[in-house]
């Protein structure tokens, strides 16, 4: 059983919202204290409980236990609503499929060049713009003023595009390869 720290929840909320741990000063403001020394003591207590960690510079990091503390809202008496507790660790299909909302675009597949990768004509593909592609990722590249959906392959130092269909030959672009987006998910609705 993990003891409940009301201040920890504020730090968790901060983390959920900003995707980073707060600084000492920010914790001071979060809990409404006037001294950083008090924050220091709280942090040490939480570190002792292994709820948070410090890095080599003394900055805070979430530990593996940090997220497991149940977020039960502000119910003071009685049992928390079980549904709320059980569903707080779930995500929507949107969240599951989309990491960076602002950079995600749709693409409607045409043709059969990626058929062996399970990407069929008419499929909905979610792509992320401006991300660094990893080797062998499926990417959207620009070839002759058109988007094309292919595997990004590397041979030695040259990158080239490869279809997932034996009918098509690999494409070695003459002047640099412009990869616009990386495929993140394929959705097919029946």
């Amino acid at each position: 059983m993990i003891p409940k720290y009301p201040h920890l929840q504020k730090i968790q909320n901060f983390y959920q919202h900003y995707r980073r741990m707060p600084s000492y000063r920010e914790i001071m403001e979060l809990v409404g204290w006037k001294s950083k020394n008090a924050v220091f003591k709280l942090v040490n207590k939480l570190v002792d409980q292994r709820l948070i960690k410090k890095d080599s510079h003394g900055r805070l990091l979430p530990s593996s236990l940090f997220h497991q503390v149940p977020l039960l809202g502000t119910v003071e008496a009685g049992f928390p609503s079980p549904a709320e507790e059980e569903t707080s660790d779930t995500m929507s299909l949107d969240e599951y499929l989309i990491t960076n909302k602002e950079a995600t675009y749709l693409l409607k597949v045409q043709g059969d060049s990626m058929i062996e990768a399970g990407i069929m004509p008419g499929d909905l593909v979610l792509v992320e713009r401006g991300t660094e592609p990893q080797d062998n990722a499926i990417v959207v590249a620009e070839i002759d003023g058109q988007w094309t959906l292919k595997y990004l392959r590397k041979r030695g130092k040259t990158f080239f595009l490869e279809a997932a269909n034996k009918k098509y030959r690999p494409i070695f672009p003459k002047e640099g390869l412009n990869v616009a987006a990386v495929v993140k998910a394929v959705v097919r609705k029946y």
Partner: peptide, 22 residues
């Protein structure tokens, strides 16, 4: 005019679409 299955001329996914690939 380029709809996915399940979209209609009235309602579409709220994500911008890239031009169809070759």
């Amino acid at each position: 005019s380029n709809l996915f299955k399940g979209e209609s001329s009235r309602r579409r996914l709220a994500i911008p679409m890239l031009a169809p690939p070759s």
